[in-house]
Design a binder for these strands. Structure first.
Lengths: 353, 353
DNA sequence: CATAGCGATGTGAACGGTCACATTGCAAGA
DNA sequence: TCTTGCAATGTGACCGTTCACATCGCTATG
């Protein structure tokens, strides 16, 4: 190394290669503008010194951080992780790095995350945490960067939306179970604490209740009291309570496959036959649901594709950064409904009549 | 806002508050050095302008990015996600942000990730991807920052290690199953492709074979041909193949709970009674294993704690940055063995004699 | 043969903070 | 009253890169 202790800089490389600093930069940014011989000399110096450009300095000069922020409730959820991976991959060709923050479903934490994030000057932000404090929207709006909300279609969007209606999912779930001939129908969903909330789960639950009521069926067995995040164990626990209270249950919708699989296992422990005695429907199409016995009927959304789509949108929004006018017309807010699919597997069946 | 289009800067705030830029900075860095009245005036200007400090600029000046890099195989694995969350949380008090990259188990991709990462000048790097190209070690060594490898105890460490011996896990798994009286014992593990490898899974498998051989038992049923990453479906598929070939099998070790649960479901589909006809042992203590019927015996490692521990180590290493000598003595490489625990649940049982 | 034109390279000034080192004002002690 | 000392604030340079623009040398063209 040239200077002890410090990492080599552009200057070190330029001195060694016998060119100016600008030429070295060009070798990285626009190699075609540099004569092949010069380029080779520079590249050798780079290799010898082990020089890696400092993007923080670059960001400062270009006013472009190369970051896209992603805020989600938790990483410990296959679908959110898949979303993150899809986003990363679709953003890679454009050279953006993902900066991930997770809120643990807490709105207060989300606020903190967004503030932290903004200090890194992301060029766009993707929000997958559905419950926002008002201040979050204010901060994001002020920063002037594109905001994309995913995995939902909120009533009061902060920016673009790529997702699906969780309320519609709930409605469809109810219609599906009703269509099978069930009438004593229950649902398992998240509790509403003051700060920790799973708004999407709540929306699915609300849609479910709504459709039940519309069909003239009782909604008393729709339970919004699951601990967040809904897990296998929580699903089993909730199912146990439900079975204790209403042994003559015919069908259950769990707002998450995780809870549904837990519920399925609880049924197995109690010797309840699925779908013979009870139909069970989940949401999320987690891989485990394909393998359980019986396999789990569910409602599927392609989260990886959701992430990819968000990434493509962002790449497109950010590309003509130079072309268009500064930002007088913040491109009209897009809303993309990617829909969802009911996947009927073995855990649901019609009522024998 | 003050200047149209641009985000407000320190200068905008200082002008509005009628102080110098340095005073504004101090309100953020060392508030106690600023007179309360002045501080209040500055804070009001900050609030009015919606000013958020630019950390890229700050990094440049302080030569500290505030980033810690984390490279892992995939996020779509509860244990790695838990590790990431544990790391994040233990680093938060010290003000570090996590920069996550994932390799999809590819060594080539890992190399790319590390290079990208280094351009953001992380102050430390945590590696959870066990298979490294040589160049990765070179790059990291040259950068001079602390490196922590987690979830393994490699023979040729790149820096510090916090983990457990995957080979020992395999040995212990075999001893456990042998101890139950089984002799026809199989194992399911990852295949070894050229680039995509799961070295930790391979190590568990190798340890398992080793212990089997040492006990004079045949190792022909130890299968290292699972698609990476090992999933529920892959576990089911592998188990099916195994049962077709060796119907008189007595015990199976799957190097991941995910594969083990898949295998468990496959057994159920085939009407094979666990643990009556077959003992099944997994690894990883994923939550689902507690809920399956029968519940899954497994080998547990606390990944969240692993992440926390790595975070604490890094925080400690980085703290006295100012105190100690520049870096003549790169603090001796630490190796922490966090061990593992066999959790015997219902899927394993002794042979009836 | 002069010169316009272009491609390759160099120059100095930002970018937005923070560092080390002044400078100022004021209270305590000789 | 005159230091001395400290707390609060200001000054200019610098962190490593890239921007806009200038310069250089060469070739093609009239």
């Amino acid at each position: 190394m040239s200077r002890p202790g410090r990492e080599p800089t552009l200057r070190d490389v330029s001195l060694r290669a016998g060119v100016s600093r600008m030429t070295v930069t060009r070798v990285f940014i626009r190699p075609d503008q540099v004569l092949p011989e010069t380029r080779a000399r520079v590249q050798q110096a780079v290799a010898e010194l082990g020089y890696v450009p400092d993007r923080a300095a670059g960001s400062l000069a270009t006013r472009r951080s190369g970051f896209v922020g992603l805020v989600l409730p938790t990483l410990v959820n296959g679908n959110f992780a898949a979303l993150a991976e899809g986003l990363t991959e679709s953003l890679r060709p454009s050279g953006y790095d993902l900066l991930i923050g997770y809120t643990g479903y807490s709105m207060q934490e989300e606020e903190r995350q967004v503030r932290t994030l903004l200090s890194r000057r992301p060029e766009a932000v993707v929000l997958a945490a559905s419950a926002h404090r008002e201040s979050v929207g204010r901060q994001l709006a002020r920063s002037g960067i594109p905001v994309v909300e995913v995995a939902d279609l909120p009533e009061q969007p902060l920016g673009h939306m790529i997702g699906f209606s969780n309320h519609a999912v709930g409605v469809r779930a109810a219609e599906f179970l009703i269509g099978l001939g069930h009438t004593r129908i229950a649902a398992l969903g998240p509790a509403r604490c003051a700060d920790r909330r799973d708004l999407r789960g709540e929306a699915r639950l609300a849609g479910f209740s709504h459709a039940l009521a519309r069909a003239g069926l009782p909604t008393g067995l729709v339970r919004g009291d699951g601990a967040i995040p809904l897990s296998f164990g929580e699903g089993a626990r909730l199912m146990g309570r439900l079975l204790d209270e209403a042994p003559d249950l015919q069908a259950v919708f769990a707002v998450s496959d995780l809870a549904a699989v837990g519920a399925l296992m609880e049924c197995r422990r109690r010797g309840i036959d699925l779908p013979g005695q009870l139909s069970l429907l989940g949401f999320g199409n987690f891989e485990i649901g394909q393998q359980t016995v019986p396999s789990l009927s569910t409602i599927a959304v392609d989260f990886d594709a959701l992430g990819r789509r968000a990434g493509r949108l962002i790449a497109a929004l950010l590309r003509p950064r130079d072309a268009g006018p500064p930002s007088p017309s913040p491109s009209p807010s897009m809303a993309v409904d990617v829909g969802f699919t009911v996947i009927a597997r073995q855990s649901t069946a019609g009522v024998a009549s």
